[in-house]
Design a protein around this nucleic acid. Structure first.
Lengths: 191, 191
DNA sequence: ATATCTGCCGAATAGCCGTTCGGGAGCCTA
DNA sequence: TAGGCTCCCGAACGGCTATTCGGCAGATAT
């Protein structure tokens, strides 16, 4: 959010921050504008509506989150065990969320509250993200049961996405939380 | 929500349903009133403000959810292993959420979006619920590490609370989902 | 210097939503 | 019959918010 950035980017950065911290329902255009160093009407010079700003934040969040995870997984050798690929994805997702990326956190926080019309449009982009997780889980699944991995995926993503809502910088760093998430999901709490 | 109920209860039931399905940010007083079979101003005969309605829904949701879980756990004999007590709690929580209790689902969905002032008040009631989980986890924890069980608790509750947002009645019933949640959390995905 | 384009502001508007107020219908009590 | 109480409605108000519009400063170009 430095002053050198273009007005458009400043608006998106500010909106991502607001959506992450306050959620969609409490995101006011005036506050987004303030974070971008301008007043509310000035936003309309860059965007057609408030919803357009929000939608672009959501799409950016999904894209960059997906890119980050895929990169961290695919950097592993092709002979890496599926479980280790899944572990890498979990760690990458949590670290990305907790490292302070407002866009991905905004998605985790506000996606469920989006107006249904916008939600369906964003869902198309989300499908890429979702199916990547599906492939990872299916490959690593011992049982191979389809319904089970689907439910497990829902649980996993909900679990990981909750991080930004309760994590506070303290004794445990993002990497430790990320590894614990992987241990917990893969190995269980009381094996 | 039958017609025989008092106006006050009809309002609370309707509000719980709205909060569960649309979330706090999109909950309109007019829609709550409509679900209760009346018009918006009539609500003020029973409650002082919209926030008061919401707060009572949250408190009821927490109370009845806690009661339900505690009952299902404490019915087990005193010699039941801690892991089995934890398992019973997980199953009870998921079943309660998915059985269609709007109050507990409303808490799971809308608690994070509450205005901070109300949130702190509700948090006091939530502490009972939270500490019960803490005790269950500590007792069942193999490591006994405090920070680890705290993080595990956050992950667990987030995981379970997400159920109402993605569950659709179909092949898998609430009980099956509940058992799978317990298996997943306790045993892990790829042990 | 004139014209033009970009990026922003000030003022104003329209709509939605929570809230207030006065009153009316039904019912119980005396 | 008269009074009072419960529960609800109709109308209206005020505040907040997204949005529109006209204009102005600064940079750039001609």
């Amino acid at each position: 959010m430095s002053d050198g950035d273009s007005g458009r980017k400043r608006i998106l950065d500010s909106a991502a921050f607001i959506l992450r911290t306050k959620g969609f329902g409490a995101a006011r255009l005036s506050e987004i504008a303030q974070g971008a160093g301008m007043l509310a009407p000035s936003i309309y010079h860059h965007f057609k509506s408030k919803d357009e700003v929000v939608e672009e934040v959501m799409l950016s969040g999904i894209y960059r989150n997906t890119r980050h995870i895929v990169a961290k997984v695919e950097v592993l050798g092709p002979e890496t065990a599926p479980v280790d690929r899944l572990r890498a994805a979990i760690v990458a997702h949590v670290e990305f969320l907790l490292s302070g990326d407002d866009y991905s956190s905004a998605v985790a926080r506000s996606f469920g509250d989006l107006p249904s019309e916008m939600k369906q449009r964003v869902l198309a982009a989300y499908a890429t993200f979702d199916s990547y997780w599906r492939d990872l889980l299916v490959a690593a699944s011992p049982s191979g049961n389809d319904a089970q991995t689907t439910v497990a995926r829902k649980f996993l993503i909900a679990m990981l996405d909750s991080c930004p809502s309760w994590y506070r910088a303290g004794r445990l760093g993002p990497t430790q939380i990320a590894n614990q998430a992987a241990d917990l999901f893969l190995g269980g709490f009381a094996p």
